[in-house]
Design a protein around this nucleic acid. Sequence first.
DNA 1: CTGGCCAACTGTTCTGACCAGTTGTCCATT
DNA 2: AATGGACAACTGGTCAGAACAGTTGGCCAG
Lengths: 248, 248
Amino acid sequence: MAGRRLFQDIADKIAAMIAEGAFPPGSRLPGERELAEKLGVSRVTVREAAIALQARGMVRIKTGSGIYITDRAVETVDDLPAVSAFELTEARALFESEAAALAAPIISDSDLAKLNALLNDMSHDDADAEQATASDREFHMTIAAASGNRAIIHVVNTLWRMRTELSEVREAHASICHHDGMTRQDEHGAIVKALEEHDAKGARLAMRQHFGRLLEAMLDANEQQELIELQRKAAESRERFLMSSRMT
Amino acid sequence: MAGRRLFQDIADKIAAMIAEGAFPPGSRLPGERELAEKLGVSRVTVREAAIALQARGMVRIKTGSGIYITDRAVETVDDLPAVSAFELTEARALFESEAAALAAPIISDSDLAKLNALLNDMSHDDADAEQATASDREFHMTIAAASGNRAIIHVVNTLWRMRTELSEVREAHASICHHDGMTRQDEHGAIVKALEEHDAKGARLAMRQHFGRLLEAMLDANEQQELIELQRKAAESRERFLMSSRMT
DNA sequence: CTGGCCAACTGTTCTGACCAGTTGTCCATT
DNA sequence: AATGGACAACTGGTCAGAACAGTTGGCCAG
């Protein structure tokens, strides 16, 4: 087992079992002791995984009784609307680019130092998916915060919550996350460079390209998986996005 | 008989400490061993609390290094954050312009008809401020909906809620609403015209100018009311926004 | 001054034990 | 036969201590 946190691994495994329908909503999971033995880890680790799943809202722990699958294990989080991974990425491409452009002229040296530190983090612990996601979040939130506009910060934060709290979106990202090992690093670097030069236009462009590439990766993944009918729809969407991107 | 899990109790205590400023954002929490002793619980419990806090995004755990407080730790948990009217308008200028650009190529004839009808409404019942605000809301939401992107729709809706539900923002709008009698009508007309021509770039520009003018009206109102010190700050903000607007 | 090593941190996981709440059963009482 | 309570066999919750692994900073040889 590599550097990745064990309990998160276990949590994902259990989540996968639930998604496969091994345990219907409302039913009880096997006991901690049984799960621990079956998964080859200690009971403590199983419980940490259960806590993580409870935080995601997939599961509810009842002391003395058991761990129960929530009705809305695959459903939407009530606070957030149901959106597809594509819609979310498109929205982030547009909004976060503007946030970066607004931040560029006034970003502080300490924020720039923080971004560089995060850049370094992400190049190191890319083996740990969860940790990399946390770094990614902080990267984007730091840029949003540098805009000094609380409305923008709130929006960017909400969009990120959609990415992590909506199961459909999270799964879509997981399926293509291995794509962007090097390129993501380069893209993040380009964003930071533009911010360092206080170049609003450049920061907007770099951020837009960052999401644009992610969007294309998602569309490609879709095209491989889905029917021709859906392919055409995706192609149209891509064309539309690229058209709206052409802002020179 | 608390029934409540111990680690949640500990998590709340740590969160309270952070909120009180005992640990500034970015700093490191005491080690697990020290915290366990200080709070009178075992290390396992401290760890579970840390996992829960990390799930909330208040904290970030780095293996071998420590537990670090996130910048967002002191942020309000309330539905809507406290934002100024200026921040909100700036955010809307950026985001809704992009929404309009995205909607332009694909907006339907029925949506265009709806916008024209609203345009007509607003020219008539300008005496009734409440009605005019409702029409204004429908105007902007229709454009957002025409983008076909639910994430964007949600964001635009949230921004509008800030405008009406945050008292400070609502009052700020009320004080300058009489400014935009004719001009607003023209601006809305320009937006619809660009949408009718399916001109993404034109729609973005028209929407941006619409909010840009509102922004200038707010800044002017501010300058009349506030001290010289604040004037300078506002002027800087204006310059910054105008700079980021120059996207040709 | 630099490079590498080492020691003193940090979090991570495991083990095995005991505590506490829940639930179903089964028997004594009514 | 019906009811009520005690009990046993679960469940999760917490603990202490140990061993492991990654990070960091200082110290020393080059």
